[in-house]
Amino acid sequence: MILKDLASLEGLKLLNEDIDLNKEIESVYIGDLLSWVMAHAGKGSAWITVQTHMNIIAVAVLLEMSCIILPENIKAEENTLARASEEGIAVFTTPLDAYKIACEFKERL
């Protein structure tokens, strides 16, 4: 599936601009400990995390992730979003929790 296909996820909102929504999502990874994520998340993954500071963008870029999804209506800081746009990383938020987001993916991936 591609980022565009996420549109049907409940209450999903893209938080930043200038994003290519045709990027492929290959898998999902859930985690908040950055060096753990760094060691285990795959390329092209949609990353579900509660972290919102700028360093998540560095992690996403280095691992070539497809996007970041913030669960439970978490909002990212402005400088995080600005950096995300510069690097072409989509940052979404949704009212769903990480478990429910993962369940939604199970149907689609």
Binding site: L33, L34, S35, W36, M38, A39, Q51
Partner: peptide, 12 residues
Amino acid sequence: EMGFGAGMGLPN
């Protein structure tokens, strides 16, 4: 709180 400190950096 920022997500660092798993103690995995050097082993990685």
